[in-house]
Design a protein around this nucleic acid. Structure first.
Lengths: 116, 116
DNA sequence: CAAATATATATAAGAAACTTATATATATAA
DNA sequence: TTATATATATAAGTTTCTTATATATATTTG
């Protein structure tokens, strides 16, 4: 797994993106999907996840539905109608940032600046 | 400019990459190049930059050369021979992370997981 | 010529985002 | 029956960043 200090600031956009694409997810499911998609590279810990989800709920960007599955409580999160544009905006902002980062890390990017 | 909390964890890899490509840079120059390359998207503040540079120096990854230019002190940073492999490693690690992030944010990535 | 801006480095206080540890509880596999 | 998987939650501590402040010279603008 990548040393997770490379992740700072990325977890919220990832969570929003997952909720945006999958419509309805519960916390544990999010951690498992992150692990699976990243092939173990990213481990989203519960200590990071739940505070983010709770904050998103407070901001009205996500809403919750509680259900008892297999005698265990499960809390589903989904993006609210009101929060939809905000979520889209935050996801787009992060995608822009990734494009910007790509400029720095493309192979031999330095050449045009060294000689420019 | 992008809200800079998207940047957490990325500044050190960016600085290392710039030093790696440009061989020898001073702090102010780094901030200006980051601004230029990112087209104003990323503002690397001095409060973030100098502590990172000082820490890299302490770790032996970079070394400094002080010069008086135009009657002002200028401190050049460059990657040490000893720190070269470490720097390469950290840059590669971050590039891997960017690749992983790309999976999450590629258009409609969700489909194959929703139906998979 | 005075004021503002650009160049140059530095650090301290505070906020935000994480990690790690801990707590609770049920289901399933070994 | 013990360990692992499922499921949510929070608190303490660390790291990393922002914002503010300090110092000093050079250059541009009004």
């Amino acid at each position: 797994m990548a040393s997770n200090d490379l992740l700072k600031g990325m977890l919220k956009p990832i969570i929003l993106k997952l909720l945006f694409e999958n419509k309805r997810m519960y916390g544990y499911e999010i951690t498992q999907m992150v692990k699976e998609i990243s092939e173990g590279e990213i481990e989203l810990t519960f200590g990071a996840l739940y505070p983010i989800l709770h904050k998103l709920e407070l901001e009205g960007i996500v809403k919750t539905e509680s259900e008892i599955i297999n005698n265990r409580n499960r809390i589903y999160y989904s993006i609210t109608q009101k929060g939809n544009s905000k979520a889209k905006e935050k996801i787009a902002e992060f995608e822009d940032m990734l494009k910007t980062l790509k400029i720095f890390f493309k192979p031999n990017f330095g050449l045009k600046y060294v000689f420019g």
